[in-house]
């Protein structure tokens, strides 16, 4: 942000703060309150005792805050395995997702080349049709990937929806930029890396965020493909802990049955899941939240 844009923004603020701004802000703040209230409630539940939560489920501040629920989560040795595995999945998986998605999105942003349309339809079709878990499992077995983290990493390579939004963003970029680069004799990948990608920062940040959250929340593939106790992702650990605390009684199975505060533990897992994402969020947010008058993307 240059000094001039900053100054301009301030002037704008002084000069043009109209009634409309007030109305918009008012509406948005009301919305924010409607969202914050239940979120604070979840935070409060995670810090409350079971009795208090049952008596006053809508509380905003627990009267006797306790970190019992968090303690229960973190005393569990599996949490560490969970963080380790999930971190691996995110750190290797997301770059893989981004590489596959962006290169394909740019490559197919023009379909006038031989086979282009065919390939694009082929990709689209996978959004509508999928074969289910059995063929996927057989495939992973055939590739000898079960019980290896690679199965989880590769099973989720390109999300067709993210591919489409990335592609349509790239298509909206002015052609002139690509053309001029071409005239300069740049190869496609040069154009891709030095022209397209820098111009696509907002959508890259968005898709990166989406992939990161998906990877962070990943558990199903790990459950079915991995079957290894030393490689369970965080969400699977959290799910198990919540379920441990809510042992299915209705199946008439005898077993150890210790009353646990399921809602409290559940709320704590939400906080534990959200916090790291929220720390990482602002770094990406700056790319898609911009002032109208600031942050020109044109070089």
């Amino acid at each position: 942000m240059t000094a001039t844009t900053k100054k301009r923004k301030h002037r704008q603020l002084r000069d043009r703060f109209e009634l409309m701004d007030g109305i918009i802000l008012f509406f948005l703040i009301i919305m924010a309150i409607m969202i914050l209230f239940p979120m604070v409630n979840v935070l409060a539940l995670s810090l409350a005792t079971q009795k208090e939560a049952a008596e006053n489920p809508l509380m905003l501040f627990p009267s006797q805050p306790t970190i019992d629920n968090f303690y229960r989560l973190f005393q569990d040795p599996r949490i560490l395995i969970g963080y380790k595995t999930t971190l691996l999945i995110v750190l290797i998986g997301v770059p893989l997702n981004m590489l596959l998605t962006t290169s394909l999105a740019y490559g197919l942003s023009r379909t006038s080349f031989p086979g282009g349309k065919f390939l694009f339809f082929g990709v689209l079709l996978t959004m509508l049709f999928n074969g289910g878990i059995v063929p996927m499992y057989l495939l992973m077995m055939e590739l000898k990937l079960t019980k290896s983290l690679l199965s989880v990493l590769l099973a989720y390579g390109v999300n067709t929806f993210y591919f489409i939004i990335t592609r349509s963003y790239m298509m909206s970029l002015p052609d002139a930029l690509v053309e001029s680069a071409k005239i300069d004799g740049a190869a496609e990948w040069r154009i891709f890396f030095s022209v397209i990608l820098p111009l696509s920062k907002p959508i890259l940040a968005t898709v990166l965020l989406f992939y990161a959250v998906d990877r962070w929340n990943e558990w199903y593939n790990a459950m079915i493909f991995l079957r290894r106790n030393d490689l369970i992702p965080l969400q699977l650990v959290l799910r198990t802990i919540v379920m441990d605390s809510n042992i299915v009684n209705s199946l008439s199975i005898a077993g150890p049955r210790v009353p646990r505060f399921t809602e409290g533990i559940q709320s704590a897992t939400i906080i534990v899941t959200m916090l790291p994402i929220m720390c990482f969020f602002p770094f990406l947010q700056k790319y898609f939240v911009k002032g109208i008058m600031v942050g020109a993307i044109k070089a």
């Binding site: 229960r72 569990d76 599996r78 441990d244 199975i253 005898a254 077993g255 150890p256 210790v258 646990r260």
Partner: peptide, 29 residues
């Protein structure tokens, strides 16, 4: 002492029907 139950709380989280039991808990109870 809590014999069976969750990891970190129980003395023996492995107790239960996992390690070979063919007679379930109802019986001994």
């Amino acid at each position: 002492v809590q014999l069976a139950g969750a990891v970190g709380e129980a003395k023996y989280p492995s107790l239960g029907h996992v390690l070979g039991s063919v007679i379930l808990w109802d019986d001994l109870a």
